[in-house]
Amino acid sequence: MHSVLRAVAVYLFVLVVFRISGKRSLSQITTFDFILLLIIGEATQQALLGNDFSVINAFVVIATLITLEILFSWAERRMPKLGRVMESLPVVVVENGKLLRERAEQEGVTLEEVLAAGREHHGLERIEQFKYAILERHGGISVIPTEDAR
């Protein structure tokens, strides 16, 4: 029983903490972010397993986490509003070559990150070549270039 409770508690806590930290925390941007995710994984491992390193306990924890994932996915499909709360919505951060500053600041997106996304996916050189840049729910930045830049 304790294994299930631990898994549920840790899953919900990590879910809430990552939602609080914003969309960008979900995408690996820098080495520091990658290391942070690794450390969080290590920190939760002990909490999930406690002192019980048996195979059965690992099975219980994994099964509980998968069950929670399935339940939440099912609930999101049935209740779109819950989906918004859990997964957020995309946000346009660049429109017609201009950075929408309020949205970018609220989401912690810098102009440099937007330009990097443009360079990576479309080879864009300047912000004026962006028709739209969208911060997606998963934390990545989608870029739609202008007609001229394509």
Partner: peptide, 24 residues
């Protein structure tokens, strides 16, 4: 929104940003 078909909701986003600040 504009010419792009995207499920964006700025009213919801503002609430989310406020909730994130409370959460932090």
């Amino acid at each position: 929104t504009r010419s792009i078909d995207i499920n964006e909701d700025l009213a919801f986003q503002r609430k989310e940003w406020f909730a994130q600040r409370i959460g932090i």
